[in-house]
Amino acid sequence: MSTSSKAVVSFIVGAAVGVAVGYFLNSDKKDELVEKLRDQSEKLKEKWRKKKDQFQDELENELA
C-alpha cells in the first residue's frame, strides 16, 4: 500500500469514528454511554491498582 493510500484509509477511518462519536454524544443514550464508560474506567483503574500493589508486595518480599 502506498503512502497516499494509507493516508486516505486513515482519513476515512478517522471520519467514521468521529461520526460515530458525534452520533452517540447527540443521541438520547449519551448519558447511558457516559455512565458505562465511567464504570468501565473505574473497574480498569481498580484492576491496575491491585496489580500495582501485588507487584509492589512481591518486589518488597524479594528484596527483604
Rank of each mutant, 00 (worst) to 15 (best):
Val13Arg: 15
Met1Val: 11
Ser5Met: 04
Ile12Ser: 10
Val19Asp: 00
Ser10Trp: 09
Gly22Met: 00
Phe55His: 04
Lys6Leu: 15
Ser27Val: 03
Met1Ser: 12
Phe24Trp: 02
Lys29Thr: 03
Ser2Asn: 15
Asp39Glu: 15
Lys43Ala: 08
Glu32Asn: 11
Phe11Asn: 15
Gln54Val: 08
Lys52Leu: 13
Lys51Met: 15
Val21Tyr: 01
Leu37Tyr: 06
Gly18Leu: 01
Ala20Gln: 01
Val8Ala: 06
Tyr23Glu: 05
Lys6Asp: 12
Phe24Ala: 02
Val9Met: 11
Leu37Cys: 08
Arg49Ile: 15
Lys30Arg: 11
Asn26Ala: 05
Ala64Cys: 03
Lys29Trp: 03
Ser4Met: 12
Ser2Tyr: 12
Ser10Val: 10
Ile12Cys: 11
Tyr23Leu: 10
Lys36Ser: 14
Lys6Val: 12
Arg38Ile: 05
Val9Pro: 10
Trp48Phe: 12
Gln54Asp: 05
Ser27Pro: 03
Phe24Lys: 05
Ser5Val: 03
Asp39Ile: 14
Phe55Asn: 02
Lys30Val: 06
Glu60Thr: 06
Phe24Gln: 04
Gln40His: 13
Ser5Glu: 03
Asp31Cys: 12
Lys6Asn: 14
Lys51Pro: 13
Ile12Asp: 07
Glu35Asp: 14
Trp48Pro: 10
Lys51Val: 13
Arg38Trp: 06
Ser27Phe: 00
Asp53Pro: 11
Asn61Leu: 09
Ala20Glu: 02
Ala20Phe: 02
Lys45Arg: 07
Asp57Trp: 05
Gly22Lys: 01
Asn61Cys: 08
Ile12Ala: 12
Ala7Pro: 08
Lys51His: 15
Lys50Gly: 11
Val34Asn: 00
Leu37His: 07
Val13Trp: 13
Gln54Phe: 08
Asp39Ala: 13
Ile12Asn: 10
Asp39Arg: 15
Leu37Gly: 08
Glu62Cys: 01
Glu58Asn: 04
Lys43Cys: 06
Glu46Phe: 09
Val19Tyr: 03
Lys36Gly: 14
Ser4Ile: 13
